[in-house]
Design a protein around this nucleic acid. Sequence first.
DNA 1: TTTATCTACTTGCATTGTGCAAGTACTTAT
DNA 2: ATAAGTACTTGCACAATGCAAGTAGATAAA
Lengths: 140, 140
Amino acid sequence: MNDKSKKYRSHCPINFAQETFGDKWSLLIIRDLMFKDKKYYGEFLLSDEKISTNILADRLEKLETAGLISKAIDAENNSKKLYSLTQKGLDLMPMLIEMIAWAAKYDKESAAPKAFIKQFKKDREGLIHELLTRLKDTSK
Amino acid sequence: MNDKSKKYRSHCPINFAQETFGDKWSLLIIRDLMFKDKKYYGEFLLSDEKISTNILADRLEKLETAGLISKAIDAENNSKKLYSLTQKGLDLMPMLIEMIAWAAKYDKESAAPKAFIKQFKKDREGLIHELLTRLKDTSK
DNA sequence: TTTATCTACTTGCATTGTGCAAGTACTTAT
DNA sequence: ATAAGTACTTGCACAATGCAAGTAGATAAA
């Protein structure tokens, strides 16, 4: 996309979300940033789902354009770039947590940690708060 | 897919969700069933995003195979088929509500009803309960 | 200081998915 | 008996994805 004139199929909120991060890969990148403390290009490439490098580059750029993530030079190594979630990206956490809870319920082989699901059922708000706090700490 | 051997890229819950309904159209169909009281093939075709008929047929089949929706003959008209959400599909409501809230926050032109967002902020659980109750009533 | 390695990409091409237009089959209304 | 409604299927062009290979700048090792 060269200009800012992205045309949405509609302004239905579900559609807006869909068009922003609803492809096969974007949410996996956000997951890696949000729950797996990944920060570097090379780390995203290592995820189980085996994203290919051209798609990763494309999605990182789209997510940055959409304002969900931001990119910076790593202070300790100028050849590395540091990716992180913006507030807009962090605000997806409640949605992702509901998604995880749903998948944990319906996927018999779900890899969702049991402690996570247990805490979700007991204290959803506390879980979200804890995760956000941890994210801010690790990015310092 | 001919057999049951669907191979997931991983059993990460985010990925499971993604592979179940993470294409460009599935969530819009679920939205129509969940919030817009649509039930018939022809009604889905009329949505603002203009899904094409071959894609709609394909997604309805996939969603049924995935157990998110079910299909029945309309009692009042044998040429019509009645689509509805299963429990597995209904269980996506919390996630969709979070998605709507996120999109309403970040899309300046969001079509999300203000009353909806207001109630979400004030009483999320009550909103979900109300919506589920209404769905069960209208399907009677 | 040259060479290798690391990191983040880009490019090319085959395969797969999507979008549009048209057609079909069964059911209901006239 | 004929037309219209409903839910699809088919064919083909175009776009997105997936894989393999290549490139460019920064850092580390000889």
